[in-house]
Amino acid sequence: MTEAGTQDAPPAPDRVRRSGRWVFVTGVGLLVAWVLVPIWLLLANALSAPAEVTAFPRSIIPSFDTASLEFFFGFRGVLDALWNSIQVASVTMIVAIGLGAPAGYALSRFDFPGKEAFRFLVIMTRAFPLPLLALPLAVMFIRTGLDDTILGLALVHATLALPFAVLITFSLFSGIPVELEEAAWTLGCTRLQAVIKVVLPLAAPGIAASAVFAFVISWNEVFAAAVLTIENRTLTAFLLQSLDVSPLHLKFAGGAALVIPALLFIFAVRKYLFAMWGIANR
């Protein structure tokens, strides 16, 4: 009994603190590695000569040889796919913000029946797995002639990006005091003029951030792109298609070409994305 008693005694507080700290550091280290190691491998391989990529054992320090990247960008179809990606992402961005920002404004400024339900449903759209929707969509697109077009794919991507556009702009507009608009009304503005002269200038950086986010969603999306396009493939769909047949260094270069712009964009607008989560968690 006495022995069991001593074993059950709580460990000294500083020992608890030390092991707690150890768990914390390990956890952070694992999470950081989880994100950074693949990116590092991608970069290291993309910036190595083709021969080095397949060599064993290989150095994890890149040799800064651009042969792989040059080969990738010279590969037939890559530049077309890249251009398609940019076009689709741009249209997605315009549609998502064009529809999302007014919806976000309405959510932040007006009380209407079903407002909470609407906010919930906006997020719910993300609950439907895209593969489930892809086949009926493909059939519908073929019937309407939207299949294999930039606009058709951009519409699908816009539906993916729209919930985020609505929620980010909702949080942005909610952060702008309504008194500023009211002051503008008393100073001679209509509702629309007040939005244009007062609200939009203040929300502009955030709206730009939310536009960039919509761009990245489209840029990274592969499933719908692969199903709905044949001739006009985006870069992701193109890479997926040629994954089996292309050499390893080409895959790495393609991966890097996809990931790096997306990473930079997201990094640039991270402040606004955090704001969105803050609102979504409420």
Partner: peptide, 20 residues
């Protein structure tokens, strides 16, 4: 009438000075 047509001006508690 909307506020702009009433011939009024208003001063708000939190000032509402346009920050931009």
């Amino acid at each position: 009438l909307p506020p702009r047509e009433r011939g009024i001006a208003m001063v708000f508690q939190n000032y509402a000075v346009f920050p931009h």
